[in-house]
Design a binder for these strands. Sequence first.
RNA 1: GGCGGAGUAGCUCAGCGGUAGAGCAGGGGAAUCAUAAUCCCUUGGUCGGGGGUUCAAAUCCCUCCUCCGCUACCA
Length: 508
Amino acid sequence: MADRYYVTTPIYYVNDSPHIGHAYTSLACDVLARFMRLDGKEVRFLTGTDEHGQKVEKAAATAGMDPQAFTDEVSGRFRRLAEAMNFSNDDFIRTTEPRHVEAVQALWRELVARGEIYLDSYAGWYSVRDEAFYAESELVDGKAPSGAPVEWVEEPSYFFRLSAWQDRLLEHYRTHPDFILPESRRNEVMRFVEGGLQDLSVSRTSFAWGIKVPGDPGHVVYVWLDALTNYCSAVGYPDTESPDYQRFWPADLHMVGKDILRFHAVYWPAFLMAAGLEPPKRVYAHGWWTNEGQKISKSLGNVIDPRELIARYGLDPTRYFLMREVPFGADGDFSHRAMVQRMNADLANDYGNLAQRSLSMIAKNCGGVVPEPGKLDAADQALLEAATALVDRVREHLAVQQFHKALEAIWEVIGEANRYVDAQAPWTLRKTDSARMATVLYTLAEIVRRLALLTQPFMPDASAKLLDQLAVCTGARQLAHIEAALVPGTPLPKPEGVFPRYVEDAPA
RNA sequence: GGCGGAGUAGCUCAGCGGUAGAGCAGGGGAAUCAUAAUCCCUUGGUCGGGGGUUCAAAUCCCUCCUCCGCUACCA
């Protein structure tokens, strides 16, 4: 049954400030969640924060704070980002919440009971300076690649039998070709797994800020086993009979950045299968942004703060740009020039102006009410049908996370509509055939309504304003209403531009 | 090093065996409803280099060059 949809962002590590990468991942999920809701599905959209681990423990200590107080604060930043970006998440999970701790410990016990976790010791060359273990093969002249001295360290650790899951993982990838997208990432993962898997150390004794291993409180659960489990804890695990779990698990989509694909596409399905649970239906790894052609890094100081984008360009234009500019999955570049281009050419000129020219003609020539159409001719019908057909086209593109193609398809119809206006020239009809003019303007109002219906997931506020200007009631904004035509005679509010043109500041 | 991907108009990219395409930028024109927005026409590329297969190659094969990704336990 496809009447439900469960989509997740990664939980964001609180040792980091929210940046464009976080906003991007969550935005993609938000667009999907909003689209699915408009398409009549019951949606669960989850995001949250990952709050355990050595780095958090240290960062809290450095800040002179208790780890929980520290994570409370940083987690709040991610909540505020979600609000600022107008994300429609239904839930926000934190790994320090009791519901999650309980889920992780239950999953752990399940894995132990099934013989998938065993106690051994973890040994390797450790560099205190780098805080990292190195493989024998990575050492250079007996030192870390960084040149730091290493020492042989052994500590007790629990291991997950990842090696036993190699064949079953490969089988899963083969029988579920859409499990990992885009395809190039799927191939990378498969090659990686084909290369052989080692058992995974899933506990740590070197720090304490984490979830205690059941029955062995000296150990803390490995951060990834902890973090990934959030997707299940949020829908009620370990109560697999709960309504939420029954409804939403397995998740339809885990959206992730390409940097954390392996954890989601290899470890996570292995953990789940080992615990007798179903793996998610899809993991999608998207690309990264550069800033004006430059790789983004903290040391370069060119990190993009989503709040600055919103302040400068506005929220919906920013959302539009991120979803439209780059083929989803690939890396992309954020540049002021490209942003302004999109804002002015796509939004202000094409879409905004189409709406504005249509609505203001109605305001001036039809008494500010939805005009009464005569019989529709072939051109009217072709345009209306093209708009209706967009529902399926957009749905198909979003089913495989091709946001840019969905928008491209919508903009094709916007282009057709602008050509239609010129071809029909209602300003001439006003003098020669006012009945035909009314038909044309009615068709245009209908087109704008249908377009606005479809742009809601991408640009919720602007689309809502357009629908308001067409006096479409809030209960008639589902995709199912695509053909629920406007009622002639309905009074319309005064039209106002929805997509302002970006004008460069005059040089000082 | 190994495996994989990509190099096509100024920019971003589509095409992947049959006379080189789109959007944006540039140029010209039309229109004047509209956020000086829209519409039409148009300049522009020996499709990274070289070799090969074929009646025919961005499109298949070989080779070279350049760039990028993956190559496990910080998240």
